[in-house]
């Protein structure tokens, strides 16, 4: 059984100008010890998907099964033991720490809430975590504004791991950091995964980071997963035209002044195109794409693509 199994998940918001289909029929699994990457542009719903899985946003339809337990609609109270095992790391290291609490309070509170040990045991656990993420213990009595972005992200990681979770949803954990700091945080996350046997759902817009850091990749476009493959397969044979466009758009030192791979803007998720939702920007679009919404079709044991022209690739 998968650690996490999401099926037919929808998250819709009622907006002033119609329903916003942020997540629109998504199914995915995360196995024990696996890092699954979720790639897409802003507004594709990847962040909402992460928050729906952690039940920070209410799903509209579908099911979320975590460790064989259906958590789609259970109450906040019954969710509490689940939260211990299902944690989240946020993008903005400046916004995700309460500016009015010192680091010790920030790290101790989860232990208090979940009734972990006595005062001395909690202090010990906090110190162990702060050591593990590479910050000095003197940091504990300081406040978030005294730290740099990379250091704050370390604190955010310590907070997410202090309850000893099994699955961590990482929502763009390195996008707000300087390049020279990104590698530090990615290395920290990967060593933590190894030591603690974690699984990650790693949400990112940065393909290079996803390529390095994940075992399996899901490409998301306008609320839907359009391609899913294990890491090596995806890079060897990307089949969805959107996946290929994303890859080509990453600046590449070996190419000089290359034209943009696709034109046009991401349509609004309030006004999703008919048929294949990528067809207005797709270089391969034909009549069928304008009318028929393609389903995910298997192209090998680990590879699924939602495109009428995936064979043409």
């Amino acid at each position: 059984m998968s650690l996490l199994a999401v099926s037919d998940l929808h998250t819709h918001y009622a907006g002033p100008s119609g329903t916003l289909r942020a997540v629109d029929d998504v199914s995915l699994t995360v196995e024990d010890g696996e890092t699954v990457g979720l790639v897409g542009e802003s507004g594709c719903g990847k962040s909402t998907l992460g928050k729906t899985i952690t039940r920070l946003v209410a799903p509209t339809k579908g099911s979320i099964v975590f460790k064989q337990e259906d958590i789609t609609r259970i109450s906040e109270r019954s969710l509490r033991p689940v939260r211990r095992r299902l944690q989240m790391i946020f993008q903005d290291p400046f916004g995700s720490l309460n500016p009015r609490q010192n680091i010790r309070d920030i790290l101790t509170a989860p232990l208090v809430v979940h009734g972990y040990g006595n005062r001395a045991e909690r202090a010990k656990r906090v110190e162990a975590l702060i050591d593990r993420v590479g910050l000095p213990r003197t940091a504990l009595s300081r406040y978030p504004h005294e730290f740099s972005g990379g250091q704050r992200q370390r604190i955010g990681i310590a907070r997410a791991l202090i309850l000893d979770p099994e699955l961590v949803v990482c929502d763009e954990p390195v996008s707000a950091l300087d390049l020279s700091i990104q590698a530090q945080i990615l290395n920290l996350l990967s060593s933590m995964k190894k030591d603690l046997g974690l699984s990650y759902l790693f949400i990112s817009h940065d393909l290079s980071v996803v390529r390095y850091f994940t075992d399996r990749v899901l490409v998301m476009y306008l609320g839907r997963i359009v391609e899913s493959a294990d890491n090596r397969t995806l890079w060897a044979q990307p089949k969805h035209p959107y996946t290929r466009a994303l890859m080509d758009a990453v600046p590449d030192p070996s190419r000089r002044r290359q034209a943009a791979p696709i034109s046009g803007d991401l349509p609004s998720p309030q006004n999703i195109p008919s048929g294949c939702r990528f067809h207005p920007r797709c270089p391969l679009a034909t009549d069928i794409c304008r009318t028929v919404d393609p389903a995910l079709t298997s192209f090998g044991p680990t590879h699924q693509v939602a495109c009428h022209h995936a064979d043409a690739a």
Partner: peptide, 29 residues
């Protein structure tokens, strides 16, 4: 050199299971 080494690159077949990224320690502060 540190910057070029620290960034994972798309055309690069280097994976986290192969080992850590090369870091520039510390920060600009």
């Amino acid at each position: 050199r540190g910057l070029l080494n620290a960034s994972p690159r798309l055309k690069d077949d280097y994976h986290y299971t192969d080992g850590p990224l090369t870091e520039i320690p510390g920060s600009i502060v």
